[in-house]
Structure formats: C-alpha cells, structure tokens
Amino acid sequence: MQKKIIALAVAGLASTAAFAQSNVTIYGSVDMGYAYRYDSNNRNVDSNSAIDGGQAQGNRLGFKGVEDLGNGLKAVFLLEQGFGVDASSDATTAAGTNKSISFTRQAYVGLTGGFGTAIAGRLYTPHFSFVSAIDPFSAGTVGQYKNVYGGGLFDPTRVDNAVAYVSPSFGGFTVTGAYSNNAIAQESSIDNSQNNTVYALLARYTAGPVDVGFNVHRIAGASGNGVPTTMKSIDNYTLGGTFDAKVVKIHGLISHNIQDNATGTNDVQIDNYMIGATVPVGKFAIKTSYMFSDGNSAAGGNAQQFAVGGNYALSKRTDLYTAYSIIDNDSATQNGVTLRRAAVVGDASNSGMTFQQGFQVGVRHLF
C-alpha cells in the first residue's frame, strides 16, 4: 500500500514538472456600480438609473500562457471572454460584444523572441490600445474618450482574422504593425472584395516619464458585417502622449479622421482634441479631461465633453471609482437639413442611450 502511495506521489510530481513547462495564468476583472444618466436628446425621456456591470472596465475572464521553446523563443497565447454580473441575460448576448459567451474579447496565439512578437487571432487594434492608454479614464466610465471621439465612424475596438507584429524595444521605441483580412466575422468565402480589411501602424516611444506615439490606420470598407454600406474607406491619424511629472500626469491627443463614402458625396471629417490630467494624492487619483470633436456637416457638427472623476485604491487589486461627465452637442446644416451630433455618456460596457450627462460610482476587483 505504501509503495502505491509513493508511486502515485512520484507520478504527481512528474506530471507537475511537465505542466510547468507551459506557464498558464488565470486573470480577470469584476466591476459593478451605480449609474445615473440625464439630460436626454429625447424629449420624451427624463432620466435613467441603473445598477450596471463593467462600467470602468469590461468584466472578463481570461487565460494567458507562455511556453519556453528554447534559444530565446517562446510560444504565447491568450483567451479572454466577457461576462455579465448584473443580469443573467448578459451572459447570452450575441457574439462580438463584451458579454458574449465566446472568447470574443481577445483570442490569439503566437511566438515571441529576440525578433519581437508575432500573434494571430482576434486582437485589439493598435489604435484602441494606444488611445485608451492616453485617456485619463482608460476608455471606461462615463468620462471615456469614446463618447465624443468617433461621431458615428466605424472604429472597432477589436478585429477578427488579424495578425500583428510588435518589434523589440530600441531604447524605448517600438513599432506595431497589424492587418485584418475582415474586421468583423469570418471572411467571405465567395469574393475577397466583400471583406473589410484593416491596415494599422503604430510608432511609440515609452521611457521614463514620457509615453508618446503616432498611429495610422485604414479600413477599406465593403458592404455588410456591421460596417456602414455607404463607407468606401476610413483613414485615421492620431498623435498623442502622456508626461508623468509625479505630482501630475498630463494627457494630450490630436486625431484626424476621414470617411470616404462610396457615393463620392457627404464625406465625413472629424478632428479630435483632448487634454487631461491625473493627480495622485495618497491612495487617491483625481482625473479630469476635456475633449473637443470638430465634425463637418456630414458628421452632424461638433461635440465637446468635460469629465471629472477619481479612484481610491483599497489595495493593489481593488479600487473604488467615480466619474461625472457632461456633453454639449452642436448642430450643422447640410443641404438645407439641420443635423445634430448625438454623442452620449456611455461607459466601457454600457451604452449612453440618449443622455448627455452621467454620474457613476462603483467598485472594481482585478484577479
């Protein structure tokens, strides 16, 4: 009997050693809070209160791993899915959203080594990863940059059917290149011209207190799969960065966006400007930002947002957060018709409906 126990123990140690060759980490985020939105574009709607999940950061469960293949070469993978905690129906939301039951946040596999990192799968766009790092609110809460940034332009957070390469760091300077054969859903099995291809390039310098970068991406449009059928192409040029002076962190961003329509008329042009600050005070981090989105008449005119908020660190993994923002939508006239921008106070996981002001409090735990 004792020999059998010893044999099982040895077998257990052997299997553990074999598994240790591939290091797998389980991680995630659970975020819940209260949101109050008011000042609606719809005169028939007054206000809305909600207990929402994923306000500051989309709730997620992920698995990431790395295996040492020798000679400096490693295999890497990541599988990440979103989930809802405030309503059972959130767990069965259609594929492609933050709360899908599939691995539709990110899912990729690749290789990394002295040459850099190459991955393939469903990926964050370099544009989103960069701009969310520049935003004081990290693309979350009602203070997020996305509320007024896009003006309705197709600007995916993640893209399917993608490959990306990240160069090694050369004194803090890196280059990221990405390509998607079809931004949303599987590629056409009939004609490649039906695919919405994405081309992206990000040059970024991060060293000491400085983080600055320039991103370019182009989406060549085709009909269907959630992309506006009138869109021929979208070009984006974004310059932004942060400077951490310890007592205050300064955030700044400029972007130029053009949507070329297939009709050749009513092309959309939007220029965005953002300035923000993060002030650490002990366990507190006070945040504020102002964003002006200058849209032409086809975009419905201009929009601007002022946001203020803060985080209080209960620990390295758990924090309390609050945010308030107000949006002002202007109007523009096109062909004798008055159009109005429809920017609203959404957050990381929940739409802003028709409301132009919002307040949130919540708690977030990372694991």
Rank of each mutant, 00 (worst) to 15 (best):
M1H: 15
V10C: 05
L13C: 01
A20F: 08
V24Y: 13
T25A: 08
I26K: 00
Y34R: 13
R37Y: 12
Y38I: 02
S40V: 01
S40Y: 14
D46R: 08
D46M: 06
S49A: 15
D52W: 15
Q57V: 14
F63K: 02
D68W: 09
N71R: 10
L73V: 12
L73Y: 09
K74A: 03
V76T: 10
F77A: 01
L78D: 12
L78T: 12
Q81I: 08
Q81P: 00
G82A: 09
D86A: 07
D90E: 15
K99R: 13
S100N: 02
R105C: 09
A107H: 00
V109S: 01
L111I: 05
G114T: 13
T117I: 12
I119H: 01
A120P: 00
G121H: 09
L123Y: 13
Y124S: 14
P126C: 13
F130A: 10
S132L: 08
I134F: 13
I134D: 08
F137Y: 12
S138I: 08
S138Y: 15
V142M: 10
G143E: 05
Y145H: 06
Y145F: 14
N147E: 02
N161M: 06
N161H: 08
V166G: 11
S167Q: 03
P168L: 04
G177E: 00
S180M: 10
Q186N: 11
D191Q: 04
N192L: 08
N195G: 06
N196Q: 12
Y199C: 04
Y199F: 13
A200M: 12
L202F: 12
L202D: 14
R204T: 06
Y205Q: 03
P209Q: 06
D211G: 00
R218T: 02
A220P: 01
A222V: 10
S223G: 03
P228W: 15
N236E: 03
Y237L: 13
G241Y: 14
G241S: 01
K246R: 14
I250Q: 04
H251T: 10
I254S: 07
H256W: 13
H256E: 03
D260W: 01
A262C: 05
N266K: 14
D267F: 05
D271Y: 08
N272I: 03
M274N: 10
I275G: 13
G276N: 09
T278I: 13
K283G: 03
G295L: 04
S297F: 05
G301S: 08
N302R: 08
N311Y: 09
Y312D: 09
A313V: 07
K316I: 12
K316S: 08
R317K: 03
R317D: 11
D319G: 03
L320F: 15
Y321I: 01
A323R: 02
Y324K: 03
S325H: 08
S331Q: 07
G336L: 02
A342F: 12
V344S: 12
D347W: 12
A348V: 01
A348G: 01
A348P: 00
G352P: 02
M353K: 15
V363L: 14
